[in-house]
Simulated scan of single mutants.
Amino acid sequence: MKLGPSGTGYAVAEKTVTASFEISKLIAKFKKAHTIGESLIKPCMLKAVEELLGQEAQKKICEIPPPKDTVKSIIQKMSNDIEERIIDKIECSPYFALQCDESTDV
């Protein structure tokens, strides 16, 4: 890992993890297979960056963790965060309603 401006690799690592997180969010948002990140998105990014910015920038893209390795865990973390927020709101509220669908359709 390369050293960041502060003399540590932390800044670089944080940016690559953030990039992987953002890619994973888009994959989840568009309801695509978790493997699409490594099979399509990352190769496209590598080609585009190589053409536009050169091989140095391409090396930085290669440092991004493969999305397929992180998508499932990131989706789980986002899901847990949403669940915790909803539970907090319910616990703080004096009243709440629950609406259920009576449909028997599977």
Rank of each mutant, 00 (worst) to 15 (best):
K60S: 15
S39W: 07
D105V: 14
A33Y: 01
I74N: 02
A97R: 12
E56L: 02
A33D: 12
I75C: 09
R85L: 11
Q58M: 12
I90C: 01
K15M: 11
S73D: 11
Q99N: 13
L26S: 10
I75E: 14
T16H: 05
E51G: 10
A11V: 12
S20R: 01
P67R: 00
I75F: 04
G4E: 04
T16N: 07
Q58Y: 00
L3M: 12
K42N: 00
T18N: 11
M1V: 08
I90F: 02
S20I: 03
F96H: 08
G7V: 03
K68M: 07
D69T: 09
T70S: 07
L3H: 10
K60V: 13
L26N: 13
T104A: 06
I41F: 01
H34A: 13
C44H: 12
G4C: 00
D69Y: 10
A13I: 07
I74P: 00
G9K: 03
A19C: 09
E63L: 14
N80R: 13
S20M: 09
E38Q: 07
G54Y: 00
E14C: 11
P67I: 05
V71N: 01
K29V: 08
T104Q: 15
P65I: 05
T18S: 07
P67G: 02
T35A: 08
I87R: 09
K72H: 14
E102G: 15
I75S: 08
